[in-house]
């Protein structure tokens, strides 16, 4: 079914105009742009693209703006302080899209069978008290950073599948959640493997399931930009995506497919991630944190739609918002549609 609304029409028109512009050598070289990033391995696509000169090849002079959390990054995109960024789909992101401020233009981190993904956890205290499976978490405290965060989504999808109810407990920061899990003040959580595994080994919690078992093909993070960039700066946006895609390819080749030198890649990523630790200590975490970044920044729109619908069903975002409001699908290949 095709819903053809005004926004879509505008996007199409914008697309046409930009496409016609592309025929000419699009961009003056070294156009300065700002890319928002968190110091996580999942942001490696951008790091590699900059380090290996892929952005420069695309005619972009990229400067990173580092953030502590995804939320302020989304706001920085909306305010125009940052041009492009990669982050999880959150309620805040959808609200900003609804206000006409931002657009999702591509996919990044994706759960994929066969590659270690995010884990559901049960705290050791709860485990010792007899909570051995996710089903046993019924009525228990489940940690999230904030209402409407990706943790909230993952917990909620799991609860729905298990037919249980959870007490979602907002703790703002991952660090605070880890503390609360260790001290047994919350009972369940989900997190990326490189955080989940070492502390599971240390006995702080137990990994009981994979997120991908409950949410197949979960599009965890997406590439997004301001609505203005998506509509009016088509050349620049495509240039950014081109650089980013090459970075993603290199990442997959080195870290997943084993067709390139992994050590060199780890060393490169270490320039941005775990910089406070020496390389030999950071390397295992970087390798453990390996996840699939969508090739060609392909976007799983089915997953995005599922997430959007969940936010709407929880009353966290306006129920009138359509996928087209959130996503500009004219840039990358979409899957699952």
């Amino acid at each position: 079914m095709i819903t053809f609304n005004r926004r879509k029409a505008l996007a199409l028109m914008g697309g046409t105009v930009a496409a016609s512009g592309l025929a000419a050598p699009a961009l003056a070289a070294n156009k300065k742009i700002k890319v928002g990033a968190l110091r996580f391995t999942s942001h490696s696509g951008s790091f590699i693209a900059l380090e290996r000169g892929y952005f420069a090849d695309a005619g972009l002079d990229v400067e990173f703006e580092f953030f502590q959390a995804a939320q302020p990054m989304a706001v920085a995109i909306a305010s125009g302080d940052v041009d492009y960024a990669v982050t999880a789909i959150s309620g805040g992101l959808i609200s900003l899209a609804d206000k006409g401020a931002i657009k999702v233009i591509g996919g990044a981190l994706q759960e994929e069978g066969g590659i270690d993904g995010q884990k559901y956890l049960i705290s050791d205290a709860a485990y010792q008290a007899g909570i051995k499976t996710l089903k046993d978490l019924d009525g228990r405290k489940y940690a999230v950073t904030q209402a409407g965060s990706s943790f909230h989504y993952m917990g909620s999808k799991m609860a729905e599948a298990e037919g249980i109810t959870l007490q979602f407990t907002p703790l703002q920061k991952v660090g605070a959640i880890i503390g609360a899990m260790k001290s047994g003040q919350v009972d369940g959580w989900s997190i990326v493997p490189h955080i989940a595994k070492p502390l599971a080994a240390a006995g702080a919690w137990h990994m009981v399931a994979n997120v991908s078992d409950y949410i197949p093909n979960y599009q965890v993070t997406t590439v997004f930009t301001s609505a203005k960039n998506a509509a009016e700066e088509r050349g620049q946006t495509e240039a950014f995506l081109n650089g980013f895609k090459r970075g993603v390819d290199d990442y997959a080749a080195a870290m997943i497919d084993g067709t390139a030198d992994q050590d060199a890649m780890v060393e490169l990523i270490h320039k941005y991630v775990y910089t406070d630790r020496p390389l030999e200590k950071a390397a295992p975490s970087i390798i453990n944190g390996t996840m699939r970044l969508s090739t060609g920044a392909a976007l799983n729109v089915a997953s995005v739609q599922d997430q959007l619908s969940w936010f709407q069903s929880e009353g966290l975002v306006d129920s009138d918002i359509t996928l087209d409001t959130l996503v500009d699908s004219s840039y990358v290949e979409t899957t699952g549609a």
């Binding site: 989304a74 209402a147 407990t169």
Partner: peptide, 21 residues
């Protein structure tokens, strides 16, 4: 109400902030 509050004016405001509502 930042930590572990499901209800409360503070939690409500924080939630609204994180949803940019």
């Amino acid at each position: 109400e930042m930590l572990g509050a499901q209800y409360g004016i503070g939690a409500y405001i924080l939630e609204a902030g994180s949803l940019y509502d």
